[in-house]
Amino acid sequence: MKHYNIYVTSKPVIYDPAGRASENTLAKLGFSGIERLRIGKFIEMQCADDVSLESIKQMCDQLLANPVLEDFRIEIVD
């Protein structure tokens, strides 16, 4: 069994309203010094040993991330 972590984040040029709103709320709670807060998606995937990293990339390209708005990063856990 292989274990991958996939991080889907909006591209740097994309405005992230949820991140901005959370940042503003943290400031209201008295937390200061936040330079940038972006909210993305975390996907945990377990799959058979013969599923290649290349096919995980294809899954991200075709479905898990939208290439117009998002970037993705795959982390091999074990």
Binding site: Y15, P17, A18, A21, N66, V68, L69
Partner: peptide
């Protein structure tokens, strides 16, 4: 082409 994002107002 393009994509639809969440409204800026949330």
């Amino acid at each position: 082409p393009g994509a639809l994002q969440q409204n800026a107002s949330l």
